[in-house]
Design a binder for these strands. Structure first.
Length: 695
DNA sequence: TGTAGGGCCG
């Protein structure tokens, strides 16, 4: 209840306001409107204004604008409806259009615009930017082009405000060349034009071009503003460029700006300098939610889930409440760890929060459960979702695919097709589901139906899935022929699929053909070198294997450190090869030795070709035994009850020898062992794996 | 009355 003193204070304010308004000019009235930071205070002022003086149109327009900016679009619209007949000035309409756009009422924005000609109100250079922004938000290219034509008819298409908005609109709708053309033809450019064009490069993935444009802008003596710096910073992908950009930011004294600080931090993280990102983060005197969320997300993207979760806890300890976007980053981190316990806790937090972006969160949680190995929970989330978009359907499909449940994926795909038109991602999901489950004919049928039934043109990624499918069937030459006949240029994934097939079928000739393209197209990817070198090694071509390892070294490509994690009673344990960090390591190694002996008796033969180090046979075997996968499995066997299945997660593709050994372990221990690797899930049971030895 | 920091699927 409000106290008596508070009521008195409000009365004093009100009476002074009345006095001010009585003697006020329109300018002071507008300035008073601008001082209102809450809807309540604005309404109070509005009431006072109504009592005190006749409102001029200019003040009214400001009032409408302010109501809209405080989120009260209904108040704004009511006011607008009462006064739009007094004037045929576009100003009032522009303000209302802006209010609608800013509050995401895009369709109402277009409706309002269509009423303008009937009232003989001509749009002006301010009208089009708002409408184009609405088109950009909805990605409606047709409408955007129509508005472009309208702007041309009214003589505003080259106006700097309008052209700037056209650049952004076309880029958001994916038509980069048109953005470029608008920019090139502008008779005059402002800093906003440059910023919008750099933003367009960013939007369409032309990062280098965006940076070149930024440099060109600086060379022309144009002082960068905040937006151009933000866009250019987001274009940076290399460490050198990052340091250079950091200097530009400091030279322009923008390093105290929150958005710029945040963008700088993300830039270093993207360039592989998560350490620099963290030290910037630690140095920020004020950390807002965006800043916390960005750093958490950066850790997750850098494959450092524990750091991400630790930071999330610190954030909560400082009483910063997470929003949906922060939680999405935390979900990503959790899905790397594949901790089902953590997933359930996080899910509970999300359910309690009643956050925005429910659809996105539900989809992320669904993805999380499936990556934690629980298709059951994932399906439950999917079934309980209030609405489903194409992403949620595709996620569920890929979930079935990852677990090798091809038939279920196809069944779901049938249901989906009746409700929603599949897109290119859906087809990647369903094709890879067919491939993972070995459903060759069904895969071909899906591939054929893409263009025929849905008008989706296959991209290189779809061809990669088909190469994988052919490879699984052992049709390697057909796969090569298929690649050669592709109407689009085969990207790394296509050759990668062929190389993977060559590993399974020990075909060194085709492997070399695949590798030739691959080591150029995907030269930065350590996995490609490792795979080729392993193929050579498995065929006894040690010299060739070393050559590839050396090539990798000379190109400065670093092999990713492999780790395997296992969750025991809600706690995550992570192992790396030859690990000695766990305090129970002596026990683990002794149990490992016994287990290896048991499976050898069952017929397991260590495949030492996976060890390249120049060491003697017995030591080699020891090195194989100490692989992180095996250490984690043994730890699970020691710690978990006899009934429970062993679930482990490897950050890279599972090693061939470990795959064989795990089959034997599942046989001798009678345990179900579930391995999640970077590609898919392997369910081991009674000596066989759900992947059918193809991955 | 124009641009603008973090986010779901393969």
């Amino acid at each position: 209840m409000r106290s008596c003193r508070a009521l008195q204070a409000t009365a004093v304010v009100k009476s002074s306001l009345q006095l001010k308004l009585k003697t006020s000019t329109e300018d002071t009235c507008i300035s008073l409107i601008k001082q209102c930071h809450t809807l309540k205070s604005l309404k109070a002022l509005h009431a006072s204004i109504l009592r005190s003086l006749h409102l001029h149109l200019h003040s009214l327009t400001n009032l409408i604008s302010h109501y809209a900016s405080l989120g009260s679009i209904s108040y704004a619209y009511t006011l607008f409806s009462h006064c739009n007949s007094f004037s045929n000035d576009a100003f009032l309409w522009n303000v209302m259009l802006r209010g609608l756009v800013d509050n995401a009422h895009y369709h109402r924005t277009f409706l309002l615009y269509t009423r303008m000609p009937y009232l003989h109100i001509a749009p002006d250079n301010f009208t089009f930017p708002f409408l184009l922004k609405a088109c950009a938000s909805l990605r409606i290219l047709n409408l955007g082009s129509q508005l472009h034509a309208h702007a041309f008819v009214y003589g505003y298409s080259s106006h700097v405000f309008v052209a700037n908005s056209l650049i952004s609109m076309y880029a958001k709708c994916g038509l980069f060349p048109v953005s470029e053309r608008v920019f090139d033809k502008m008779p005059q450019r402002s800093i906003v034009s440059w910023s919008a064009m750099i933003g367009a490069c960013l939007q369409c993935g032309f990062h280098e071009q965006g940076l070149l444009l930024f440099t060109r802008m600086l060379d022309q003596g144009i002082k960068p503003n905040r937006a151009s710096i933000l866009n250019a910073t987001a274009c940076v992908r290399r460490e050198n460029a990052a340091h250079h950009m950091h200097r530009v930011i400091m030279d322009n004294v923008l390093d105290n700006d929150h958005s710029v600080q945040n963008a700088t931090m993300l830039m270093f993280a993207r360039c592989g300098r998560i350490d620099l990102a963290r030290s910037l983060f630690d140095g920020f005197t004020y950390k807002d939610l965006v800043c916390w969320a960005s750093m958490i997300d950066a850790y997750a993207r850098a494959d450092l889930p524990l750091e991400a979760l630790l930071l999330f806890n610190q954030m909560r300890l400082q009483c910063v409440l997470p929003d949906s976007i922060t939680l999405l980053a935390v979900i990503q981190a959790c899905s790397i760890l594949a901790s089902l316990h953590l997933a359930r806790t996080l899910h509970a937090v999300i359910i309690r929060c009643f956050l925005e972006c429910q659809l996105e969160l539900d989809t992320a949680v669904l993805d999380l459960y499936m990556k934690c190995g629980s298709l059951t929970y994932a399906r439950k989330v999917f079934d309980n979702m209030k609405g489903r978009n194409i992403i949620s359907w595709s996620t569920m499909l890929s979930g079935y695919g990852m677990h090798g449940h091809g038939k279920e994926a196809l069944h779901l795909f049938d249901q989906m097709k009746a409700l929603i038109k599949p897109d290119h991602v859906t087809f990647v999901s369903i094709l890879s589901a067919c491939s993972h489950a070995g459903l060759i004919n069904e895969g071909w049928e899906c591939f054929d139906s893409m263009v025929r039934d849905f008008g989706v043109t296959p991209t290189s990624e779809h061809y990669a899935c088909m190469v994988d499918l052919l490879g699984r069937a052992g049709q390697l030459n057909q796969a090569l022929e298929f690649i050669e006949k592709m109407p689009v240029r085969p990207e790394a994934g296509v050759w990668g699929a062929l190389l993977g097939a060559c590993r399974i079928h020990s075909n060194v000739e085709l492997a070399e053909i695949a590798a030739k393209s691959l080591l150029n197209l995907d030269a930065e990817n350590p996995g490609r070198y490792v795979l080729l070198s392993n193929i050579y090694a498995s065929l006894g071509k040690r010299r060739e294997a070393y050559r590839i390892r050396n090539l990798m070294k000379s190109r400065g490509v670093k092999k990713k450190v492999g780790w395997t994690s296992i969750e025991i009673k809600g706690k995550m344990y992570t192992f790396v090869a030859g690990d000695r960090a766990n305090p129970e390591m002596d026990l683990i190694y002794s149990e490992l030795g016994k287990l290896m002996e048991r499976i050898r008796q069952e017929g397991y033969i260590p495949d030492v070709s996976f060890v390249l180090h120049d060491v003697e046979g017995e030591t080699k075997e020891m090195m194989l035994y100490a692989h992180s996968e095996k250490l984690a499995i043994v730890f699970g066997l020691i710690k978990l009850g006899h009934e429970s299945s062993i679930r482990i997660t490897k950050n890279l593709r599972v090693c061939g020898d470990c795959h064989t050994a795990t089959k034997f372990i599942s046989k001798v221990t009678g345990r179900e062992i579930v391995v999640r690797d970077s590609q898919r899930f392997h369910h081991f049971m009674n000596g066989t794996c759900s992947c059918g030895d193809y991955w």
